[in-house]
Each structure stands twice: as structure tokens, then as C-alpha cells.
Simulated assay, not measured.
Amino acid sequence: MESRVTPYVQVLYRSVARHEDFHPSDLDILRTAIKFNAEHGVTGILLRIDEQFFQALHGPVQHVDALMTRIAADDRHQNVEILLHEEAMDTSPFKDWSMSYDSILGFEQELGLQEDNTYPVITPDRARELIALFAKTATSVATYGSAFPYARLSGENDAAYLARLDGLV
């Protein structure tokens, strides 16, 4: 019997949050993502950048695409814009983390709202750079932790992270 290899994808999207930074809805999004992603082999990071969400995802195409359909319908954010959706290697840049959370300042990467009230255009090459930056951020958080609310603690696995987040509800 011939085995079939599941194709993997990486996705980067941005959306506009309906609530301020570190609102309880961020915690709910994060807890839901950890549970779903852990069950379906999806990894990634959710970042708050000013009033925006940026999320990088990696995993089996059928699960990531189903997740993107759910994300697009989620009323906790609006204006979901897929910046990159492409085939990827089976090794995740986010190691075995089903999801992480952190925040970076938009001006550091020129990702914030511009003077004309628009967000910068993100080309596919720039999206790949951002995924690499976000993976580096996830690795840094895994090693050193983060000062931001809801972020993983250094060395914290999915189960411990989820248990801690559940305690914040």
C-alpha cells in the first residue's frame, strides 16, 4: 500500500482586533488555539502588534485551511488579510509549540498604522521575513520568557501553558 505524505503549509495573516491589547478575548483566542492546534499538528505564534493581530501558522494543509476558515469568521477581530499561504517543509519553525503569544511594537518592523490610516503592504518576501522573525521571537520566549501578559514562560510546554492560562480566566 502506497503511503501518502501530508502536504504542509505556512500561513501568515493579519487582522484588526476589536478589543484593546491584552483584553480577555486575547486569552480566549489563545486557549482555543492551543487546544485545536495541539490536536491537529498545527504550530504557530499569535502576536499583538499595536491594534492588530499577526498570526503565523504551520501544519498540515487541511487543518490549517480549516482553521483559517474559522479565524475568518471569528468576531473578535475584523479585516482578516492572508499575507502568505504557501507549501512548507514538514518541520515547523515553531518547534512543537501548538501556539505562543507575545507582542512587539509595530514601529520596530514598520507594521503599524500609517499616516494615511492604512496598514503597510506586505509582499510574500516580507511575509516570509516576518515568519522568520516571529519564529525567532518564539525561540527567544522559549529560552528567556517574556514580560507580556499571556506569554509563555521559559521552558513551559503546552500542557503547563494551558493550565496556567486556564487559571487566569
Rank of each mutant, 00 (worst) to 15 (best):
L84C: 08
Y119R: 12
E108A: 15
M68V: 15
T91A: 11
P60E: 11
V64F: 05
E87W: 03
Q109H: 14
P93E: 12
W97C: 02
V80I: 14
H85P: 07
A72V: 12
P120D: 09
G112Q: 07
T118R: 13
Q78P: 08
D102K: 00
D75E: 14
P120L: 10
T118Q: 15
S100G: 12
H85A: 13
L83C: 11
S100R: 02
R76C: 15
E81I: 07
F53R: 00
T69S: 11
I104P: 06
R76K: 15
A73N: 10
E115L: 12
Q109G: 10
D65C: 04
Y119G: 05
E51G: 07
D50N: 10
E108Q: 15
A88L: 03
H58G: 04
A66Q: 09
M68T: 12
E51F: 04
D65V: 06
I104H: 07
T118L: 12
I82Y: 09
S100P: 01
E81Q: 14
P60R: 05
F54P: 00
A56R: 00
D65W: 02
F53Q: 00
I71D: 00
L83N: 05
H77K: 05
T69C: 06
E51K: 08
V61L: 05
V61S: 06
I71A: 01
L113C: 10
D102H: 04
F94G: 00
A66K: 06
I49L: 02
E115S: 14
P120V: 05
D96A: 15
Q55P: 01
D116H: 13
F54Y: 08
L111Y: 07
D75L: 10
S103K: 04
E108V: 13
D90G: 11
S92C: 05
A73P: 01
T91I: 12
D74G: 10
H77W: 04
N117H: 13
Q62V: 13
E86D: 09
S92A: 08
R70I: 04
G59Q: 02
A66D: 09
M99D: 01
H85R: 15
Q78N: 13
A73L: 10
R48A: 08
R76V: 10
Q78L: 15
I71K: 00
L113K: 14
L111C: 09
H77F: 09
W97M: 04
T118D: 11
S92R: 02
I104A: 09
D74S: 11
T91Y: 05
D90K: 11
T69I: 14
E51Q: 09
R76Q: 15
P93K: 08
Y101T: 00
A56L: 00
L111Q: 07
H58P: 02
E115Y: 12
Y101L: 03
D74N: 12
T91H: 07
T69A: 12
L105P: 02
K95M: 15
Q55C: 01
G112W: 01
L113R: 13
H77D: 07
R48G: 06
L57H: 02
A73R: 10
L83W: 03
A73H: 10
D116A: 14
H85W: 08
E81R: 13
